[in-house]
Design a protein around this nucleic acid. Structure first.
Lengths: 336, 336
DNA sequence: GTGAAAGCGCTAACAC
DNA sequence: GTGTTAGCGCTTTCAC
């Protein structure tokens, strides 16, 4: 750690007391203008910066935010992280990034460790394991200690905290509309995320909308044991689909590639629409039409909410749930 | 922040002094076994955890590592971050993640802010701007203050610190070999990263190896103003290439897609090999053969080096540069 | 208008 | 074997 300039050093050099120096730097009206200027001048010269650790110890605030992410290799989460980071840095907050790797244990551990002495609040997406197990006590414990949490994307309904989610059901419905308008008659769904709440949510949205067209659909839950492309190719062939909705980016891109295997032209013979407007979607061939969750915006919004709560703690208002609207990014796997 | 159990509380409850309690928790031999046990028992009951802030203030160590990454949306960096996080968490270090977004100013700002009072050391990849400008003083300042830095992937030769790099030149040579062995006669290079040291390094490696086969090559620097695919398609057609080396993942995947535009079968008519074994490579069609940098390993190695240095500060050994060997991941865009 | 003193929670040298 | 004390760097109340 850097050899620091302290208040003590400044006070010694100026022949003033530590407290006078401290007050001067805060422009305390008690102090004469002349002194304030002398102090500030030297402080600037010496490049004085307060010791954040000492300030934190005193104030019980660290100006840091714990971010717990299930999977950093997932482009969506990377986007959210970026959004959080930008907003935090704007407000002079640091972020401590932890990766739960979808594990309940790790999530709990991080929550525990960081809440104890490290962060003023959390931003997180619930791990898959916690979600399947329905274990949410670890969140409530943190909240009980008055450390705010903002959940995004994957949230726990039973936990009473701020949330930022996406209207997945509606987005899924829009995806159906898009395919229907592209002229699709038979639409199938493929997914690698049916264990997650978002996956279920999206499928529900698809199903409902499909029904409104008096049609039916089926879902293919992709298995890791076999090539996604092949599973999808079989699925499309067997059901004679001309439209595929991929509930996550991987599934959707795999569907596009499956068309290649089958020799089906996209979008002429097979239309595809995916979720998550990530890097994969922009680099498939043809480029994928997707329902965008606006991950970055989601991240910055979550950070904004948390920081607001942290700063104007005074009136502790009630938790709110913000819903981000999805939008369809039209590219080459659907036609108009 | 959580309502904490402090040493003071324990000491009050036990009728002992604070220091006795403190020592007991450290199993100090000065303290009687009986007392130690009493103290530990209560501490466990009360779920006592030392206040990290106070410990940090005292010890001048924060057990946190500043990680500065140029671009978190880049899958390679995400992988490295994952490697760092895992290793750090194993050693009970926190990581503070900052994203320079390739900007020199941001990089400097983060370095400054975190070095002043926040982290024990840094792990970073140099931003593009700093690299093109050749501005490295901000790193030296930090080092001067005795805060260790470990650079990875994108390093600054002039800065005297630990480094973890990849043998890009050799990897590039291997890529050439691979294409030649696949039967390629005319090999072209495409890249989106020619401003970066890694880009230059890789191109040099390609050029040299190509020469050893008494062949020639050219490089296409992709411009953001136009579709990558189209630029590459023209490049391939004009030069009649049957092999393409993409110096980064985006360029390589775009080359595969360009083949689609040209109606060239991959790998029969056009072989492609890329760098960075990321998510894009696994989801192109056909799946991309790549030179892997082993990002995750890189991250964990960097973290290991830093933590080692931090913990056994005693013998301050000289900075070292570790070279990670690349390896070729064979997939569908090359033949044997 | 300036300074002394206490205290945030912990550690460690030193006393008893 | 246990306790006292000083101090990490800062803020803040209270005294002068």
């Amino acid at each position: 750690m850097r050899q620091k300039v302290t208040l003590k050093m400044l006070s010694l050099e100026l022949g003033l007391s530590i407290s006078t120096v401290s007050k001067s730097l805060k422009n305390d009206p008690e102090i004469s203008q002349a002194t304030i200027e002398r102090v500030r001048k030297l402080a600037k010269e010496r490049n004085y910066k307060p010791n954040a650790l000492a300030v934190s110890l005193k104030s019980n605030k660290t100006r840091s935010i714990g971010v717990i992410i299930p999977d950093i290799l997932n482009n969506f989460f990377a986007k959210v992280l970026l959004g959080i980071e930008i907003e935090a840095s704007k407000n002079n907050y640091k972020i401590i990034t932890s990766i739960s790797n979808e594990s309940f244990e790790k999530e709990k551990e991080y929550l525990d460790m960081l809440s104890y002495n490290g962060v003023d609040g959390f931003i997180l997406a619930v791990s898959q394991e916690a979600q399947t197990k329905g274990e949410f006590d670890h969140f409530n414990e943190v909240l009980k200690d008055d450390i705010p949490i903002v959940m995004f994307d994957r949230v726990a309904d039973d936990v009473y905290c701020d949330k930022v989610i996406v209207d997945d059901k509606k987005g899924a419905g829009d995806a159906v509309d898009k395919l229907i308008n592209s002229g699709c008659k038979r639409i199938g769904v493929v997914s690698t995320i049916q264990k997650l709440s978002v996956g279920k949510e999206r499928y529900e949205g698809v199903e409902r909308r499909i029904k409104s067209y008096e049609k039916e659909t089926k879902i293919l839950k992709l298995k890791k044991t076999k090539d996604y492309e092949e599973q999808i190719a079989d699925f499309v062939k067997d059901n004679n689909y001309d439209g595929i909705i991929g509930l996550d980016e991987t599934a959707a891109v795999s569907a596009v590639n499956a068309a290649n295997i089958l020799g089906l032209k996209v979008p002429e013979k097979l239309s595809v629409i995916g979720f998550t407007n990530g890097i994969l979607s922009r680099h498939s061939y043809p480029k994928l039409t997707t329902v965008s969750q606006h991950g970055r915006r989601m991240g910055s919004l979550a950070a904004k909410i948390l920081i607001d709560k942290l700063e104007l703690r005074a009136e502790r208002y009630l938790p709110e749930t913000k819903v981000i609207k999805t939008s369809i990014i039209e590219r080459g796997t659907t036609s108009n």
